[in-house]
Design a binder for these strands. Sequence first.
DNA 1: GCGACAG
DNA 2: ATCTTGTCGC
Length: 217
Amino acid sequence: MARDLHPWPTTEADAVAVQERLRAEVRVEEPPQVRTAAGLDVAYRDGDDLVAVVTVLDVATLSVVDSAVVRGKAGFPYVPGLFAFREAPPLLDALDRLSVRPDALVCDGQGLAHPRRFGLACHLGVLTDLPSIGVGKTAMGRYEPPGEERGDWSPLSLDGDVVGRALRTQRGVKPVFVSIGHRFTLDAACDLVLRLAPQYRLPETTRTADHLGRVLD
DNA sequence: GCGACAG
DNA sequence: ATCTTGTCGC
């Protein structure tokens, strides 16, 4: 499923170097039709124990058609900007255990809306070469509040670049922050997020993955 | 120098 | 991320 991820960096300096090198591989393009989308999430237990969860949903019906869970230990501290080095390894393990290859990855976090334009969604997209997007609950950048209606959005800027959108998925609810991971366009990403979030603020992909990791012992 | 800083 | 009660709304 994923490209070999060795060598995996241990220090922050090496991690940044990996991001600088891999970001050249991000492609911005219209994705093929997305019939199934995977939701990825990591839940933390005591100490360094974690549970990585992937659920695959049929975009038309929003029913879960596959899922995988991996228990493990965090091998990298939480450092803003280096999120992928903590969560990508167990998530890639979980992706390998799926019996279907999803058409797209919907990541819990940012894609291009990142200090070096290479957030978790970009990292997972490049390593798997799957179309991917990031949907964050908090903004990585600046934005003006979008209109109050579902579907309203405003540009998300970082260092003078438009790196994503603040997208209102429900009327009168705080927007989510959408950015491209790999092999996607911003329009297609927001379109997908709206299809995945007909009722709640967050897309069903992340909701089902989060729920599975939470209910698990 | 000080605050900000995905999960 | 996680620690946590009551409350509002569908």
